[in-house]
Each structure stands twice: as structure tokens, then as C-alpha cells.
Design a protein around this nucleic acid. Sequence first.
DNA 1: GCTTGAAATACAAGCGTTTGTATTATAGCA
DNA 2: TGCTATAATACAAACGCTTGTATTTCAAGC
Lengths: 361, 361
Amino acid sequence: MSNKKTHTILDIAQIAGVTPGTVSRALNDSPLVNERTRERILKIAKDLNYTPNMVARRLSVGKTFAIGVIVPFFTRPSISERLSGVVSILSNSPYDLVIHNIENTKQRTIGFQDMLLKSRIDGALIISMPILDEDIAYLQETNIPIVFIDRKHPGLSDFDSIISDDIAGGYKATKHLLDLGHRKIGFIGDITEIYTKPANGTDKELNPFQFTSSKDRYKGYLKALVEADIPSNPNYFSEDNHGHIEAKSMAIKMLRLSDPPTAIFAASDTQAFGVIQAAREMELNVPADLSIVGFDDVQAAEFMELTTIRQMLYRSGQQGVKKLLERISGSNSRSHQINIPTEIIIRKTTAPPNGQVKIAA
Amino acid sequence: MSNKKTHTILDIAQIAGVTPGTVSRALNDSPLVNERTRERILKIAKDLNYTPNMVARRLSVGKTFAIGVIVPFFTRPSISERLSGVVSILSNSPYDLVIHNIENTKQRTIGFQDMLLKSRIDGALIISMPILDEDIAYLQETNIPIVFIDRKHPGLSDFDSIISDDIAGGYKATKHLLDLGHRKIGFIGDITEIYTKPANGTDKELNPFQFTSSKDRYKGYLKALVEADIPSNPNYFSEDNHGHIEAKSMAIKMLRLSDPPTAIFAASDTQAFGVIQAAREMELNVPADLSIVGFDDVQAAEFMELTTIRQMLYRSGQQGVKKLLERISGSNSRSHQINIPTEIIIRKTTAPPNGQVKIAA
DNA sequence: GCTTGAAATACAAGCGTTTGTATTATAGCA
DNA sequence: TGCTATAATACAAACGCTTGTATTTCAAGC
């Protein structure tokens, strides 16, 4: 590689016979510089192939021109769809997007501290991250704006957040099944696998974190059941770590019950796919023998013809950054919780139980 | 928000009664500082809740501690799986990951110039980006290390690249179909939708870019056909922009031929899903009436039980950054092209044509 | 012709680190 | 005790830009 030294504002200044300050102003369209000099400077800059040093600029103006996105489990489709939304907005802004993935407790602490505290970003978007009580302190301490997507926590009321109405979504899913005539409806959900510090001697203990979206979707499920006067059956409830593999085994267990459910509502599409796999393995026809509804409406859901609850992942990402950008540019309005509505998308994995004829919608 | 002013190295220095230089050295584990003073300084730093200003550090050191990833079409599952691999490596490095998405020509130029030239990153990973001849100049001009993933171009031999053997993959897919007994095999691929500047008066013209992976997969397809002595039928070839919708219509057109193919090889899983949708719409059974094989082995492929060519997307991302990190830390070895092997994953969308009995593998 | 004010530019400090070099303190040794 | 080598620290420049303030220039107004 050639050792081409990059030019600085000073080089330009010398050639143009002005001071660096003037060059800076010329480059930044300041009205304080004469139109002719500006042109001259611009020409020289072009000839020199000048490219501004962003780092210097950042130090000088005291902004990083970067926004950080903190996500767990980058691999999940719902996360990357949300991310797409974020990216779409940021492409047309002067802000860089820096990503931090967090998959375990250690990374978690580092992630929070590093990103939030080391003045590397002007604002943070925290997506689908379980928030522990002990985190709240960090978050409050930081002066940079933060907005949450898909996360509720009582301590978070100071912050902006974008959430889907999970309870309503869970309700809609279950109601749909109920309307179809199902009475035995299983629920398969996930728990967050973040561990808290050993509280009192125990090695490590699972954090009974109460505000995961899965839990809320379950609440909606329950609500629909009581409304229909159906007692909830503990055998029809199961949760484990997120993933289609886990969901598959939960489903198999549930379907092997002596009195198995005729329908299953899964807390995410990924899990619903696991349930579909279980049905295949057990040679159950979907939807004839088993109805399945998911949650998210991930891209693959369409291919799988999965009935699911759409929650506009892409849009939630967009809304989130927009809000964050607002905050960064100094909006001082009270923090706000934006609710993104859900919608049921009926495809081909749901039908009336067994022999029953499907009633036209 | 409280107006807590963040502390600097100078504050610590004053309290500790030393100079900023010493504090800096203490913080960076320099052996030039006495153990006792270091401890004192560390303590003060902790009490003060000191957090280093990365931007200042970057300016001083002359590194950005960030690596840029330039991707087109963030939404494609194959891209985000590659990205996951990148993220997994970068999580354990001091480097930030900044993402630039490029979806059109304008963003493209800006993206290249901004990222590469404005000293915002120490190195770049360019994934699945069509490279135009005119780009090469920029790329060579930049002094920062670049590695390409999934992109070939004759002008790119100066750079490192990670590629899958698309030709071999296409060959494997087609051979599988051939072995099953198919003789009428369609190919559905994509073209890149990057437009070049109007060359001579024309409004804009599609760049006949020759090195997309789809093209190479087609080459492999062709190779298998000639080997089997089957003349290629132009009606069985179709390409359009990438996407399942486009693939679906191409497939429908192809399947409406008076003598339609009994199998279709799609250049990506997404496109294969489109073909599956077409089959559904035309009430064709897969694989009985139509065999389908995709390419990529995206996560959804498993759920869809799609026979496909696996190309280890995640791993390609990992390899890419690793190589880049090497370069950044100064490896001067000659540029290298790493080939990632492909592998056929036989699932349930392929079978012998029509009545024929499937031969056990 | 002198004053006044606006316009354009120069000057210089500042952003928070790092790092090469100079300086001081300390211990070892003859 | 004086000298030297070494360890520890101080000093100061540098990274490349921005921006508040001071200075100069020049034309308009009286």
C-alpha cells in the first residue's frame, strides 16, 4: 500500500493562504465566509482529495455521531427484522450505527458499561433486553438518551419505550382459537435465560424476571380463557429457553398427554415452527389434528403459512430510532411509551378442531 | 437529567497529585508507573466514576477502534446470518462494529466514500456487494484494509476475500436432481439491481455485472447438464431481481409452459420459497409433481424442509472478520482468497419425477 | 475626511487522550 | 561521599478539528 499521507485542514489552509478556522467554516457552509474564498477552498480540498477526520471532529464538537444498538441474540429473526427498521432510518442520518450483541451475563455488564459510559455513542437503543433491577442504576446514571424497544420494567418509566401490546396479542391469538371451537389450548412460551448474581449462597439462580413479552402473551391467553369460562389447565402450559428445538420438545411432551390439546399458541414464530416440527414428527396433521398460532409474523411465517400475531417488527425499529434521534437533538418532552398495535394474520395452521367444519370468517 | 459533568484524566491527576501523563499510563497498565501510585490512581478513578473518553483516545492513538461492515439489503436472511458470524467475533474484540446498509446507487457512493475515506473505521468488511469497475479506484486508494465476503471481481485480486464455491454448489444441486431422474430442470436466479451511470445518452442502463453468485450457481447447473448430456433449454432459465415474490412469478411462468420442468433449482433459499409458493398456488405437490432445491441453507430452510446447498453463512462472517482483524494488526501476507465449501442438505422438497419410485440414497 | 458598522478573516484556546523526552529522586557501588 | 544507572514522574507536544473573540478591511453615511 502506498503511504499516502492524508491531508488535513491545515494543508488546505496553507495552500489557500487562509487559516484553518476559515477552512473549517468554508467546509461547513458557515455564512461567515466569503463566497469566493469558499469556492477556492472547496476546489483545493477537492484537488487534494481531502477527507475530513471524523474522530477529530467528534472530539471537537463533543458528539460521537454514533448511536448504539444493544441487542441480545442477534440471530433471532425478530431481532434482525427490528434492526432492519433501525438501519433504514439511520441510513439517511449523519449517525453511525454501532451494534453490541449481548448473549451472556458477562457481556451484558461489559456491554452496558462500555457502550453507555465510555462516551462512544450519543444515544442507545436497547432492544428486547431483559433489564435487571441492578441495571437500572447504570441506566439512570448515564446522561445519554436511551430508548427501549420491546421491554417493560417498572423502573423504566423514566425512559422512552416502544412496545407491542403483548397482552392484547395473546388475547387475539387465543380468541381466534376459541372462536374456531377449540377448548383445549396449550401455551408454549419462553423464559429469559439471564442469571442474577448468587443472592445467598446458591450457585446461581434463575432470575424470575417478570416482564418478558412471553409472560404478557400468556396473560392475554389467560384472559381469553377466563372470558370463555374455560379453566386453565397447568398441563397445557410450558416454558423453557427460547428456540425452536426447545419448543419442539415441549410440544411433544404436551401432545403426548393422555388428553392433549387440540391447539397450541406459541409465544413466538420461532417456537411455533418448533411446534410444527413436533407435529410432523408425531404425524399429526396441521391444522386438522392440531392448530398452531405463533407471534411476530417473521418473514418465514408467510412461507410456513403460519397463523400468527403480527407485531410490525420493522416499524418498531423505525419508531425507536426516530424517538431516539428526537431525544438526542434535545427534545425535552416527558418520556413516552409508544404502543404498537398487533394484528392477527390468519393463514393455514389454524382450523376448527378435528371433524368440525370450519365456519367461514 | 442531572448535569453531571464527567470527569477527565486531569481531574484524577489533580487529586492524585500527579500529571495526566502518569494517570494515562497507570490506566493503561504501563510498566513505567510505580505500583503504589497506580493503585492510588485506580482507586481515585473508581471513586470518581471515571470513564475514559474513547473519542479522545482514538484521536490521540490514530485508530478508530471500529470496523465497518458494508452490506446491501440488510433484510435478506442470508445477510443477517453472515452478520451474526461477524458479531460473534467482534464481541470479544476491542473493536466496535459499525454498519452501513446500501440499497441504492446514491447510498452506494456515499457509503463507500464516507465509510472508507473519512477515517471512521480501521477496516472494512464488504459483504455481498456488487462491485463496479468504477469502485475499484476508490478501494485501491483507501489505505485501510478491506476484505470481501461473497464477491468476486477481477479487479479485486489485491484484496482478501471469502467466497463459497458457487459453481460447485450449483453443480451439486443439479447433480442431485439429475440423480433423482429429472431431465427437465429449471433454473431461477437473480440479477443485481445496481445501475451504472448513463454511459452514452441512455437514461440508465442495467449493469451487466458478471460476477454475482447467482451467475456462478448457474454455471454449475450448466456444467452438470452438459455432463449428463442434456441440452440446456432457454425456457428453463429465468432471472429477475432477488426476492420471493419475483421468484414466484418466474416459477409460475415456467410451470405454465406446455412442457414444464419437473424440478427447479433456485439460486437462493428465498427464491426457492417463492417457487414453493408458486407450486402451492398451482396446486402442484412438492416434491411429487415438482422438486425444488435452494441455496444457502438459511434458518427457515429447515422449517420448510427444503433441500438446499448449505454454504455456512455464519462461518463465512467469522472468517471474514478474523482475516480483517489480522490485516489491521499488520499482517503483510499476500492477499488471499478463502474458499468455504458447500454441502448439499437433502430434505423433503426433492424426489424422483412423477410416478418414479425414489431410490434410496 | 472621519466615524461607524458590517463583513471577512486571523488568532488562539479547547476537546481528552497518548507518548517521546526531559527531569528528578533513589539506590547501588566504589 | 560522590558518581552512575535506573526507576518514577513531570513536561509538553501532538492528534485534527471547531468556535468564541479579536482584528482587519472596506464601504456607507455624515
